[in-house]
Design a protein around this nucleic acid. Structure first.
Lengths: 218, 218
DNA sequence: CGATTCGTTGACGAAGTTCAAGCTGCGTGG
DNA sequence: CCACGCAGCTTGAACTTCGTCAACGAATCG
């Protein structure tokens, strides 16, 4: 540790540059700033007593993070070299008219995370994750995978082995093509969606959303 | 649709009575009310395209729910017969100074959920869940288990078989005693805490990340 | 160019799901 | 009051998945 500010480069006009891997703030720190991503990618993660690391979110250009109230409840780290706009929290001109917007956003992000973790199999989680990534960073010729396998694993609650294997399987099945380690091309987005949503073949009657009758249990 | 209000009984002075199993509002509905539990227990759950059900929270007397902004993003259902105080959401975003407290609570609950789903064995999840329950509803002679095994399973990301088995194991190990299906007595809260926190014996050196040595699972 | 970190891959075992059967408690109706 | 049926729960056995262990290959950095 001790690397808190180690990665910070030139700061000018409220911008700060962080080197890949450096920590932007620690879980537990007093929230002196909030941040907006100008370029690069940031991850937030929580460390648990047992050493388990849970990545809760990735932030891309335009995203805002570090809005916690009394103390940061997750750490933030630069996944790639990143340029951030840094806003001091004096007096509390947070971007929202109150904390509740920030809270709502955090809640939405937490729910997305729950959704990923709730998907049961490794294939489902990874497919869903890749789709979310595509959704977010559409590019002509493929998708960047800026984060390490370990990051993906810690985000999805898997091991890097399973991530690697599953990616390999997808590759063999022709769903994706790996182009180097940090980039991939989606070949069959339909199939991926099918895996992510785990659609079964026979949706018999009307129930996309209408368990009204009695199905309290599953 | 139709059954939405089916379980609603007498409504007077902003109170509404819901019968066990009835739906209070559906995921996707416009948020016309927010609620406070007067008595009984409520669960919120999200249904996914694949039929997978994720229970995100249980609410007990005094708890507040239904604060979503543009539409309810989870359904709410009565686990037991429940009496709720119902507040209309006329006009403005959300009233009440208690809102941000409730949001914070929701966020904390979501994080707890993430923690549970993230990387824990069935025993760890169930021990943690029971401790949370005890924390919340301490009673002289035991703990109510007002929700079904299926509810617990869908909350913890397990099957009802595993829930049942694990409960049985705890019983055999003398950690708890089941008294009928819906009530249990905690016999060894120490041991349960140890399981829930997955404490290992040797606190690591200085690294914030030392999962290398210890088994996360147990 | 060697060293270190990161990623891939195979073998194996434990944990949990699935399948299948049977049990319990409760409500309904005879 | 008891028989019956149903829904929720428990339990056993087979099977699948994924984490662990281990070894190796590939990129990156000095």
């Amino acid at each position: 540790m001790s690397a808190t500010q180690a990665g910070v480069g030139a700061v000018s006009g409220g911008f700060a540059q962080y080197r890949r891997g450096s920590t932007i703030f620690f879980q537990g720190d007093a929230p002196t700033y909030w941040f907006e991503v100008d370029s690069g990618i940031v991850r937030t993660c929580r460390l648990h007593a047992d050493g388990h690391r849970q990545l809760t979110s990735f932030f891309f250009a335009g995203d805002v993070f570090g809005l916690d109230d009394h103390e940061y409840c997750e750490s933030a780290e630069a996944v790639t070299d990143a340029r951030l706009r840094r806003y001091p929290r004096s007096g509390g001109p947070v971007p929202s008219p109150g904390t509740s917007v920030a809270l709502r956003r955090a809640l939405a992000s937490a729910r997305a995370c729950i959704h990923l973790l709730g998907h049961r199999t490794a294939a489902e989680r990874i497919a869903a994750f890749m789709l979310a990534l595509v959704e977010r960073n559409r590019q002509a010729d493929g998708v960047e995978l800026p984060m390490s396998r370990g990051d993906i694993a810690d985000h999805l609650g898997l091991t890097i082995h399973t991530v690697s294997r599953t990616l390999g399987d997808f590759c063999k099945s022709g769903l994706i093509a790996l182009e180097g380690r940090r980039r991939l091309r989606i070949l069959d987005i339909e199939a991926l969606s099918r895996i992510a949503d785990s659609e079964w073949t026979a949706p018999p009657t009307s129930r996309p959303e209408a368990p009204a009758l009695s199905r309290v249990g599953a």
